[in-house]
Nucleic acid binder design. Sequence first.
DNA 1: CTGCTATGTTAGCTCAAGCTAACAATAAAG
DNA 2: CTTTATTGTTAGCTTGAGCTAACATAGCAG
Lengths: 119, 119
Amino acid sequence: MMSAANTKPRNDLLAAVPYQIEAGLKKLGANLKTARLRRNLTTEAVAMKIGTSRFVVSDAEKGKPSTSIAAYAALLWTYGLIDQLSELANPLTDEVGTTLALSHERSRARRSRKLNNDF
Amino acid sequence: MMSAANTKPRNDLLAAVPYQIEAGLKKLGANLKTARLRRNLTTEAVAMKIGTSRFVVSDAEKGKPSTSIAAYAALLWTYGLIDQLSELANPLTDEVGTTLALSHERSRARRSRKLNNDF
DNA sequence: CTGCTATGTTAGCTCAAGCTAACAATAAAG
DNA sequence: CTTTATTGTTAGCTTGAGCTAACATAGCAG
């Protein structure tokens, strides 16, 4: 009786995806669906090409958060848009990062004694 | 003896990720790592913020294909870069798609009798 | 240089992602 | 309108993604 009550998911991230992330993924999925339809391809045809099932393609087009990035990336690749993926978080266009980088450029994060909880 | 020989993975996509996809994911992972370090955050701090373990953060920074897109998206979100995600495959900047779309704009793909194997 | 700590690595375990199969719903072709 | 095929949905099953824990490695602060 007590056992079933304690049903805390092991993965907190997937258990409660922040709204902005959910919204972003849904838009991405919609974009992928539009890209497929414009090329007049079926989910099954695309699935075969990338070596998966049509359900995974469908999941990605719905923006399902738990689907592997490989699925999303494979769709981008199929539509000739793979280059856009590696532009995400590009250091050259990451303004916040670029500004911050001018001072320190490390290979590990580090506590500098005090000011740590800023952010 | 025959049983073990037939070890075909269930997921063909993850079993053999195309090179371009692998390369793109690795670059993305490197970008995410750079973004984190510029902000002087530890993998553990970021992991806590997004509700996962530091190993998942590490996996994403390595560009692991089987990691959920939620993990990648959460990192982008943490660094204030989530908007870039929904710009992927944006129909407005998908040249190939835009050109093709001028003729048909469907909600399902369709075989038009013959010419199907083009692409 | 020296200690502190961030990160890498490994092993074992658990649960859900992704698979198959069957059926329903529905958009497009003619 | 009728036919056909694409897409949605569900259920059950299997494998691997992600977790914990412990230890090793190696940057950074001082």
